[in-house]
Simulated scan of single mutants.
Amino acid sequence: MKKQWVADTCLLFVAFIWGATFVLVQNAISFLEPLSFNGVRFLLAGLFLLTWLLIFHRPQLKMWNVSLLLSGAFMGFWLFSGYAFQTIGLLYTTSSKAAFITGLSVVLVPLFAFFLLKQKPKANAIFGVLIAVIGLYLLTMNGELSVNKGDLLVFLCAVSFGMHIVMTGKYSSQFPTLLLTITQIFTAAIFCVISAFFFEDWTQMLNGAVLQKAEVWSALLITSLLATAFAFLVQTNFQRYTTATRVALIFAMEPVFAALTAYIWANERLTTSALIGCLLILLGMILAELPISFSIRKKFSSNRQMTQ
């Protein structure tokens, strides 16, 4: 139980990092297109972790094998797919709808975990998921219920992020954390760079004038080290001690942290419904953490014994 609480706390910190860097990324991609930005970001993160491996953990190099490479590449593929579908989908839909639909991975993860990993979610986790989804709607949506092709693409993004969480849970206990993280990050970097070559002006990745802009290099430095290298290293290491459903609920806090940091740093105002949404997402996460289902069963059993 102690390891699970430590894991959940560390993963919540990861969600905070992702949410807190949202404004930084938003500013940077006005100069460097999204796939190009992520290509450079993942590449820098991979090089940093590879350097760390060569200096401090060189003996682990002997543990690299085909199974590890394939597992890490599979995780990296889903990671890239999430960013790619979200980026393309945003061309056809609003950011608020994209944020809500992406957050629906919190619903998909328990389903994927049940069918792929045979992890049956507890009753309180399911209840927490439903409350979090309502909170996501209130936080991100403005009464928009229409569906277009951009929404479908972003839904594929939610599927991809959900699969990434589930696959991380599957492979994190089978292979060394650092090697698995490096493999998935380099895989995502390669796919991002290739996609940028076909769908964006990839030359901007090599444009010194663009990379020297404070908004770009500061965002690349912070996101590559904190939001990528550190964050995915933490997720890969600690997810083995918790369930995929709990991870999805914890990561549902990312838009909450994004909204709060936007309020503090960018002076963006939160509506009443957005504030209620933030509270519901937090409540959903807390409910999933509490052993409610166990308590109910225990109380029911006690009452049943008393009546017999």
Rank of each mutant, 00 (worst) to 15 (best):
L220S: 14
F31T: 12
L116E: 00
M253I: 06
I29V: 15
L136H: 04
Q60A: 09
V166P: 01
V210K: 10
G277I: 03
A274V: 04
L156P: 14
L179T: 13
L283F: 08
G135D: 00
M75L: 04
L153W: 04
F31Y: 15
S301K: 00
A288Y: 01
K120T: 14
A259L: 11
T271A: 12
L47P: 12
F257G: 08
A258P: 04
F191K: 08
T140F: 11
E215K: 07
F294Y: 10
G76W: 03
V147L: 11
L179G: 13
L11W: 02
G143C: 05
A84L: 07
V106A: 15
L221V: 08
L221R: 05
T140P: 03
L35A: 11
T243C: 07
L290Q: 05
A28N: 10
S95N: 14
A189N: 05
F232E: 11
A214D: 15
G46T: 10
T87P: 09
S195H: 01
K118S: 12
V247M: 07
I101M: 04
G162N: 05
F197I: 05
L11Q: 09
F251E: 13
S30E: 12
Y263H: 13
Q305C: 00
A7G: 06
F127A: 13
L111V: 15
A259F: 02
F100D: 00
I194A: 14
F230S: 12
V166Y: 03
F80C: 07
F197V: 12
F197D: 05
S218G: 12
S224G: 11
S36L: 01
L226W: 00
L130H: 07
A248R: 11
F198S: 11
T245E: 03
S36C: 14
W265E: 05
T93N: 02
A288L: 11
I88A: 01
F85G: 02
F300L: 09
Y92C: 14
I190S: 13
A189G: 03
Y263F: 10
L282S: 09
A252Y: 01
L47M: 06
L153P: 01
L220W: 02
F294K: 08
L136R: 01
